[in-house]
Write a protein that binds this DNA or RNA. Sequence first.
RNA 1: GGAGAGAUGGCUGAGUGGUCGAAAGCGCUCCCCUGCUAAGGGAGUAAGGGCUAAUACCCCUUCGAGGGUUCGAAUCCCUCUCUCUCCGCCA
Length: 424
Amino acid sequence: MIDPKLLRQSAADVAANLARRGYVFDADKYLALEEQRKAIQVETQQLQSERNASSKRIGQAKAQGEDIAPLLAAVEDIGARLSKSESTLQELQAAIAAVEFDLPNLLDDSVPEGRDEDSNVEVRSWGDPATGAFSARDHIDLGERLGMIDFEAASRISGSRFTVMKGSLARLHRALIQFMLDTHTLEHGYEETYVPYLVHAHALVGTGQLPKFEEDLFKTTGETPFYLIPTAEVPITNLVRDSLLEADQLPLKFTAHTPCFRSEAGSYGQDTRGMIRQHQFEKVELVHFVAADESAAALEALTGHAEIVLQKLELPYRVVALCAGDVGFGATKTYDIEVWLPGQQKYREISSCSNYNDFQARRMKARRRNPDTGKPELIHTLNGSGVAAGRALIAVMENYQNEDGSIRVPAVLQPYMGGLELIV
RNA sequence: GGAGAGAUGGCUGAGUGGUCGAAAGCGCUCCCCUGCUAAGGGAGUAAGGGCUAAUACCCCUUCGAGGGUUCGAAUCCCUCUCUCUCCGCCA
């Protein structure tokens, strides 16, 4: 959520910033609502003040055994006026909140202009996309030849966008997860966490998936539904909701491996083959909680931590700065890491690292005490994949394939594979 | 699933209809005393919002959330969420 004070005081500036995303913020309409809210709120508070004063008087009179009947008569009509005023105020506040919850985050000044991914800017690249002696197979071909990926079985069980893996490939997938978790906890200073995969709506409101993107989520039935997490970002980031942290408790860095569940509504026809885009996939997530003036540097560090994973796996990748139209709803700035997939002859997203500034913190009421002023202030939150395990598996398969369809095990994964060097 | 208890400020924890935004303790800040690897004394210390040039006043709201009763609710009633205890079931 954007600071409501900023919205009021600089609505036009906010609208201009959001216009870079292609989002239309009707500042005039918002300010008109705000003006009404202000008038009603002043009136409401005036009435509350009157009521409080008379109630106090009644209490005192009663304590002294005086007759309170005339005092009661005097406040008779306040109740009705107040409740009418209060309900009007509530409606206005709800209308304003609806606008505010729909607003994406302000973009960082450094975000490149552009409407879609074609305008994303490559920041750096690492490794050389192999131009091998033979034409590379894609992971589907490789997996099925090995008899270790079974999309048919998956669809018999759960329909499309699910995968069954077997044998060494299933183990390689698990090895990737262990390797990533170990790298981040042992070398990058993250604390490992185990978190719920089913969460309540308020957690998703905190991170920004709700109320706007409900159709992307799986939801349980029942009066109080649970939602399946679309990313570990949701439970990890909500670790600090409703809290006031002391200055010396920051920065905090957490990681977790979780499955992620996405309905992929609206992505019909995209990546329908293979395991690029699934309803269920595994991911190792990285989350930072930092003081406001540290988030820009934290984004660079976090992105670097995800890159190290690919470097250790010796997978070619590039880092792109997402353009204005491509930055996600709650982020102020995002780097995507795209790994080279020989089977597609393309770079494909394998990690997305974002700075949310105080956008999520405001929704979650996550604060720290400023050591200089002694006052609470919102913290900044960041998250990124470090990295998506399913796609990392695809990348390893396609980049480490031999002409005969066998797959070499990356050196850093061999200890997690019982020393296995080749999958045949 | 059954029975019961509970949710209060940064933390612990009192408080069952009116000078309670809330005792006490801890923590923190400042001052004093003491000169020593410690301690003692005093004062202050919730958050969010409105108004405002203001981090000054003043006002409003908030004691898990949402409703209700009342002139007045942390205190009474209802619903929900969460936590704990016992029983049952269970990976």
